[in-house]
Nucleic acid binder design. Structure first.
Length: 380
DNA sequence: TAGGTGTTTCCTGTTT
DNA sequence: TAAACAGGAAACACCT
């Protein structure tokens, strides 16, 4: 099932995994290093009480900046004493925000501001509430988001928190059928992974902007196997579906030919191409490096992958589709699946970047041409 | 601009 | 029966 929010979560994850560009600071931080700044130590720079870009976006699509901007707007509007707030409560993205109940908002921001925020949030959501009937998160996604929330608000305990995920809905624009979307595992990843891994891929902002333009409309969804009659395609705003392209070409849906079909030239697709070209992925970050980076930070990968034999470089995918989605987000490709990822992995056999591990599913081994994963290299 | 590289996409068939 | 594996084929995007 589609999930632009999960896509955003992935963007966040990738932005944190591979922070390539400085984020636009909405806040001027004056707090000393080493501790999270209190809200009173910051100045909202959202044009003082003017609505920011958040007003133009579905709350579920808000970035952390959008959320901060939104909170800042209401702090200003209500002349609320910002010193009473904790910045930790403001550090969330839209999807997380939308899972929070009114009671929780009140407990976080106080009755006055909390209620105001809740009211504003509901209003905003109502503005963008379209066809949410079939876009609820799957149970596993809810579980995963629950984890996200636990990670995001570790300081919030007790019954007041309530069932935060009850209200989670997702948008239909970016199909992503994977049930293992546990991407905010990386929410706290900031600057944790190997610095070399930052090769100028995505920034959160750009990922978000691109997704806003429809750049990531998903041409196929992994679990559906995307049959030609998949109604999802006909509802896509832009004709980015390769299958659709084939259909249009031949008139009658038939077996498509081998290989990657040429992409269509619709206006939407031009936009897509533009977005991609303007933010190309430079060399340096390869799939195997991406995999390696997840592996060499076991304390952060939260069960996506694990070492089977650290010394020999044998590892296993625990959440294969989640890893694939994460990789897809990194490459701005929302239709990435484990099947495709694994094909790319298999090409590494020839180059001896990976070695085959026979008889074991989801298990691979680094080959002699891979680097940076050995204990001697990483130091741990 | 052409060629190389590294995927990405899709496929059929096989194995677990 | 589904998921994963295997590998051919071709397209695509980026780099040199």
């Amino acid at each position: 099932m589609a999930s632009s929010e999960l896509s955003l979560i992935l963007n966040n994850a990738n932005a944190n995994l591979y922070p390539s560009e400085p984020q636009t600071n909405l806040l001027s931080m004056t707090a000393p290093m080493g501790r999270p700044p209190h809200l009173s130590e910051m100045t909202f720079s959202s044009n003082n009480s003017t609505m920011g870009s958040w007003d133009q976006v579905n709350p579920q699509m808000w970035t952390r900046q959008n959320v901060l901007e939104w909170i800042g707007f209401h702090v200003e509007e209500s002349r609320f004493d910002a010193s009473l707030l904790n910045i930790n409560y403001c550090n969330m993205d839209g999807i997380t925000l939308c899972t929070i109940s009114k009671e929780t908002l009140v407990s976080m921001f106080g009755s006055m501001l909390g209620e105001r925020l809740h009211h504003s949030l509901e209003s905003q959501r109502a503005r963008y509430a379209t066809d949410l009937s079939d876009t609820c998160l799957s149970e596993s996604e809810l579980d995963l988001l629950d984890n996200i929330l636990q990670n995001s608000f570790p300081y919030m305990h007790g019954p007041s928190l309530g069932p935060l995920l009850e209200t989670v809905v997702v948008q239909p624009s970016i199909p992503s059928d994977n049930s293992e979307n546990n991407y905010s595992y990386f929410d706290e990843y900031t600057n944790q992974l190997t610095p070399e891994s930052d090769h100028g891929y995505d920034s959160l902002t750009e990922s978000f902007q691109s997704s806003q333009t429809g750049s990531f409309l998903n041409p196929s969804s992994p679990d559906s196997n995307s049959s030609d009659s998949d109604p999802e395609y006909s509802e896509m705003p832009y004709s980015t579906s390769t299958k659709k392209f084939v259909k249009q070409e031949s008139g009658e849906p038939k077996k498509r030919g081998r290989g990657r079909p040429p992409k269509c030239q619709s206006e939407g697709y031009d936009h897509f191409i533009q977005a991609k070209k303007s933010k190309h992925a430079p060399r340096g970050t390869h799939l195997w490096e991406f995999i390696r980076d997840i592996l060499i930070h076991p304390e952060k990968n939260h069960g996506l992958m694990k070492w089977e034999d650290r010394r020999d470089g044998v590892f296993k995918f625990l959440k294969s589709e989640a890893v694939a989605q994460l990789w897809g987000q990194k490459k701005k490709n929302s239709s990435m699946t484990y099947e495709k990822l694994s094909r790319a992995m298999r090409y590494y056999y020839k180059r001896e970047i990976l070695e085959r591990v026979d008889g074991r599913r989801l298990v691979y081994k680094f080959g002699k041409n891979s680097t940076g994963w050995r204990i001697e290299e990483t130091g741990y």
